[in-house]
Design a protein around this nucleic acid. Structure first.
Length: 183
DNA sequence: CGTTTTTGACCGGCGC
DNA sequence: GCGCCGGTCAAAAACG
């Protein structure tokens, strides 16, 4: 598609209209300490997730676990498994975003693997998969036919690795926090 | 040249 | 069984 371009930053209106159904921290992967490098001191002393979510307290080693509220409002179509609960399907999280751009930069890299026209919608639905091999997170993007200015992004599954983009931008801050926490 | 997109084929579930 | 529908595969094209 139009991937060569850097996705435009969200406008103020985009931010105001951005209503996640879950706390953003629930989208972060569990901190993989072994991926931060052997020489890194990250991960062992500080619960970065709770720190970033604002629930971190000094000396609190046991913050409230992110009891992932499972389903969003629009996931009603999951009733397919009427009697056959074969495998618990991964949780789905949907975001409604008012944006001119279909592709929202969430920090992860995605590979498109399909596109289909859905019934009762003029627009098509695109299917993406996380490019990390060990991570089978999927997401689908479709634009509301009623209000074409709204993009629905549905995530399925949780990343088992950190976003290199987020890590890159957060690394200096994390180092600083690590340094300060040692005092 | 490696990676990503495109796009029709393919497949499985479900209702009739 | 058949056809619709949503999701995925995969080969070829496009891209940088």
């Amino acid at each position: 598609m139009d991937n060569g371009e850097t996705p435009p930053l969200p406008t103020v209106e985009d931010v105001l209209n951005f209503k996640p159904l879950l706390p953003l921290t629930s989208l972060l992967p569990p901190m993989a300490t072994d991926q931060l490098g052997q020489d890194s001191q990250f991960g062992s002393d500080i619960d970065w997730i709770s720190l970033l979510s604002g629930s971190f307290k000094i000396g609190d080693q046991n913050p409230s676990p992110p009891t992932a509220a499972r389903d969003g409002e629009n996931v009603g179509k999951n009733k397919k498994k009427g009697g056959r609960a074969k495998n618990a399907m991964p949780p789905r999280i949907a975001f409604h975003t008012r944006s001119v751009d279909d592709i929202l930069d969430d920090g992860y890299r995605w590979r498109k693997y399909g596109q289909k026209a859905v019934k009762n919608s003029v627009h098509q639905r695109s299917y993406y998969r996380c490019t990390q091999h060990t991570c089978n997170v999927k997401k689908q993007i479709q634009r509301l036919s009623k209000d074409s200015s709204i993009v629905v992004t549905t995530y399925e599954g949780m990343h088992n690795h950190p976003s290199e983009k987020v890590m890159e931008s957060l690394s200096p801050l994390l180092r600083q926090l690590q340094f300060l926490s040692r005092i």
